[in-house]
Amino acid sequence: MAPYEALYGRKCRSPLYWDEVGEKALVGPELVQMIVDKVKIVRQKLKAAQDRQKSWADLKGRPVEFNVGEKVYVKVSPMRGVVRFSKAGKLNPRYVGPFEILEKVGTLACRLVLPPSMSRIRNMFHVSQLRRYIPDPSHVLEVEPLLTKGNLGEELKYEEVPIRIVDTKEQVLRRRIIPYFKAQ
């Protein structure tokens, strides 16, 4: 419905609706009929444009269905200043995972089993954010033990200490010189 009709509970008293209200005799049937014909033409052209856009959109879209128990990757959305899934930067992967689908919520959402390290992230995702995982026997990841030297802290952080300066370089700009050092 039109905003006017939603606000006031009746149709707007414009020439578009005079044929429905019964004021056709006041203005003249030719003017009202001409306006009604124009409105029909506009509606037909809008419908044709919507159908054309829908046909192009349907060509690009692909129906994606996932089943319970399958493994999928989750897309890491690169937004400026937002770190998701503890990943940031442009060289990090676009997708993380694989994660198992716990249940389907409707036709377009899936609930995933996330590890405890991602407990703060909501575990329901739209299918457009998921990519199918194709199992590969060579894709088995082996867990390597962490560094056990004494410099590893409680939060798994360590301090890097340079051993020696390998190379030096100076970048000459117009008003200043920037020294660069390559450390081992």
Rank of each mutant, 00 (worst) to 15 (best):
V76F: 07
K54R: 15
S86L: 12
R80I: 10
L59E: 03
R84T: 12
D51K: 07
G69M: 00
K54Q: 13
G61R: 07
P63Q: 14
W56P: 02
V74P: 01
N92L: 09
L91G: 15
K90R: 14
E65A: 13
V74T: 01
K60V: 10
V82Q: 07
V76N: 11
Y73W: 11
E65V: 12
D58F: 01
R84K: 08
Q50T: 02
R62E: 09
P63A: 11
K60I: 11
F99E: 09
V64R: 06
S86C: 05
K54A: 05
G61T: 05
L91Y: 14
V64S: 05
D58W: 02
V83F: 07
G61V: 02
Y73H: 09
K71S: 03
V96R: 04
R84F: 11
A57I: 00
Y95H: 14
V96Y: 11
R62W: 04
V83L: 05
G61K: 09
S86M: 12
K87G: 03
V82Y: 05
P93I: 08
E70M: 12
R62N: 05
N67W: 06
E100G: 00
K90L: 13
W56Y: 13
M79V: 12
W56G: 01
F66M: 11
F85E: 02
R62V: 09
Q50M: 10
P63V: 13
N67I: 03
K75L: 04
V68Y: 15
F85I: 04
E70L: 08
D51L: 11
V74A: 01
L59N: 01
K90Y: 11
S77K: 13
R52G: 08
G97N: 03
L59I: 02
V83G: 05
A49C: 15
D51M: 07
K54E: 06
A88V: 00
V96C: 11
P63Y: 13
G81I: 05
A57N: 00
V72D: 04
G81E: 09
V64Q: 08
P93Y: 06
G81P: 08
E70T: 04
V68C: 14
L59K: 02
N67L: 14
G69I: 00
F66H: 12
A57C: 00
V76D: 03
V83I: 13
L59D: 01
L91A: 15
A49D: 15
G89A: 07
V96H: 08
P78N: 11
A49Q: 15
S86I: 08
K54I: 01
E100W: 04
D58G: 01
E100H: 00
D58L: 03
L91D: 15
F85V: 03
K90G: 08
R80D: 12
E65G: 09
K54S: 06
D51A: 11
P63D: 15
Q53M: 10
E70P: 06
R62K: 12
V72E: 04
V83E: 08
P93E: 06
P63N: 13
G97C: 03
K54V: 02
N67P: 10
